[in-house]
Simulated assay, not measured.
Amino acid sequence: MKKIIFICATVLVSCSSAKFHKVNGVSFVSSGEEASQQHIDPVLNVQANYAAIMPFGFTSDINSPDLVFDSDRQWFGERREGVEQYIQKMHQNGVRIMVKPQIWISRGAFTGNLKMLTEADWKQFEEAYEAFILLYATLAEETQSDIFCIGTELKVFVNERPEFWSELITKVRHVYHGEITYAANWDEYAKTPFWSRLDYIGVNAYFPLCEEENPSVETLSKGWQPWKAKLKEVSKNKKSPILFTEFGYRSMDFTGKKPWLVDRNQTDVNLEAQARATQVLFDEFWSESWFAGGFVWKWFMQHNEVGGHEDNRFTPQNKPAESVIRKQYSQERKTRL
């Protein structure tokens, strides 16, 4: 089935949505413990058919060439053994996988600004990053994971080191034979140079939609139109479908203004704004033949302990947005059946 989807998506971008099974995914956050059935059941309950499993590499600064990964000092779910266990547990429950290695910079600095200051530092960092990516590409092959993501929001790195990325894609293809993407930030994807060598145009879809405190459906939909037109154009030109490698909104006022914000601000909780923005995104994209689906940001293992009516963070868990997602993903499942 995977090969059929691949042909439909990359060669016949205009194929009917009835033949193109959407990725209805969650971004499954790593934890210090093994995944058990009680952690997977909420994923099944929301009717997700994919989960992004996200091992991490860590660096101390945007200019540091050191990258630590698969270390005993990391949480179980951030290491190779944990990623493998999460994948196996998801597969036992019929959930497909995108393996999505990511970098965390100390104090949450933006990875798009990661930049080495000397050629020697670039070489050192590239050697470490290649080892990081190939470790998990090999695991993705061994576990027969469906999609592998070669990087997330690394704008400067991608722009300044094109030869490295060209060689990395070739090396990943040698060890992994599934579908490949890259998770470009919303403001970098249009200029990412290597889409023709990947299977999906991956976009972290935190597009600014409006300035309103409590935006209406109409306002949010209007805000999407220029971004949607550009996404469609890029998909057509590159002859590849768009995949939202991340999408989501915080449950707070002004949720459509700067959806990428991860600061711990005290903006008032607005559960309905999150639900409304999520529904508009589904309405705008899920019926489009050039759109492959996406992974909601973000989904924690300890379902009963997160989210809720006093939380203004991204997770939709235990909020009205969870019901919106369940309804959409359920419709997709019924269509497939």
Rank of each mutant, 00 (worst) to 15 (best):
Q92T: 07
H174M: 10
H309L: 10
Y176K: 08
R250L: 12
Y200H: 10
I242T: 06
E332A: 14
T315K: 01
M252P: 00
W195P: 06
M116L: 13
A184H: 03
Q74W: 07
E310V: 09
E322H: 06
M252K: 10
F194V: 00
K230P: 00
K236M: 04
P42S: 03
H303Y: 15
K222A: 13
F20D: 08
A52F: 07
P316F: 06
R173G: 02
K327T: 15
K3L: 11
L281E: 12
S166C: 06
E167M: 12
K100S: 05
V46T: 12
R333Q: 14
S64D: 15
N24K: 07
H21A: 07
A35K: 10
G223A: 04
K89F: 04
T143E: 15
R197I: 00
I4N: 05
P226C: 10
L117H: 01
F6D: 05
N24V: 02
I7H: 12
Q74A: 03
W165M: 10
S27K: 01
E160H: 12
E218W: 01
P101D: 03
W224E: 03
E179K: 13
S71M: 08
A128Q: 15
K228F: 11
P42M: 07
P241W: 15
N304P: 00
I242F: 10
S64T: 08
M54L: 15
Q328V: 02
P320N: 09
D263G: 11
P208S: 08
Q47D: 14
Q274H: 10
I201E: 08
F285H: 03
R264I: 03
R73Y: 08
K327Q: 14
H303R: 11
N304D: 14
D253T: 13
S289F: 00
V99G: 06
D187H: 14
F207C: 09
V296T: 02
L135P: 04
R336N: 09
K232F: 09
D187P: 04
V324I: 14
A52V: 05
T278E: 08
Q144G: 05
F282C: 02
K100W: 03
E213C: 09
D263N: 14
A9Q: 15
T192Y: 15
F157T: 01
A52C: 07
S330M: 05
Y50C: 03
V23T: 10
E127K: 15
P193N: 12
L220T: 14
I5P: 02
T181R: 13
D61F: 09
A109G: 00
L154V: 07
H39A: 05
Q88R: 15
K257R: 13
L168A: 02
K222V: 02
Q102H: 12
I242Q: 04
D187T: 13
A321P: 03
A183C: 11
G108Y: 00
V269E: 01
V175E: 09
F148S: 11
P162S: 06
Y86T: 00
E84R: 13
R197T: 13
L231S: 04
T267S: 05
A52R: 05
E322T: 05
Q331W: 02
G256K: 00
A137M: 04
L198H: 10
F285I: 02
N214Q: 11
S16Y: 11
